[in-house]
């Protein structure tokens, strides 16, 4: 019974998060759709959290090995995802005012 109650709560979390995601993401302009994709990729690299436990739990050879591979894959997404999102977002800027002598910020 307790387990069932817990799973219902998880379902609530999923639905509410999906709802929030829908409301927030529909407002992201097409201009930033590519950064949005790489950002959500980086964020879903949070599955690293599950991989860490599998890799470090010392249960069985196979679990540890699969966990290790999962840590590698998820870390690639986290590190690469946040870096490339930042690199892209850095490039988007408004027209610079003509007044300045073209001094680039960055």
């Amino acid at each position: 019974m307790h387990e069932t109650a817990l799973q219902i709560v998880e379902l609530y979390v999923f639905l509410l998060a999906g709802f929030v995601g829908f409301l927030v993401i529909t407002r992201v302009p097409p201009l930033l759709h590519t950064p949005l994709m790489s950002a959500t990729n980086a964020i879903s690299g949070i599955s690293l959290v599950g991989s860490l436990v599998a890799a470090g739990s010392g249960h069985a050879r196979l679990t540890t090995f699969l966990g290790f591979l999962a840590v590698v894959a998820a870390t690639i997404n986290v590190v690469g995802g946040f870096l490339i999102t930042d690199r892209m977002l850095k490039m988007f800027h408004r027209a610079r005012p003509e007044a300045g002598k073209g001094g680039k910020e960055r």
Binding site: V13, F14, G21, T40, S44
Partner: peptide, 15 residues
């Protein structure tokens, strides 16, 4: 994980 996955799923769905 559920939250991050749901956000990712919603984003992909909307796109």
């Amino acid at each position: 994980l559920i939250i991050a996955g749901a956000l990712d799923g919603a984003s992909g769905f909307i796109l």
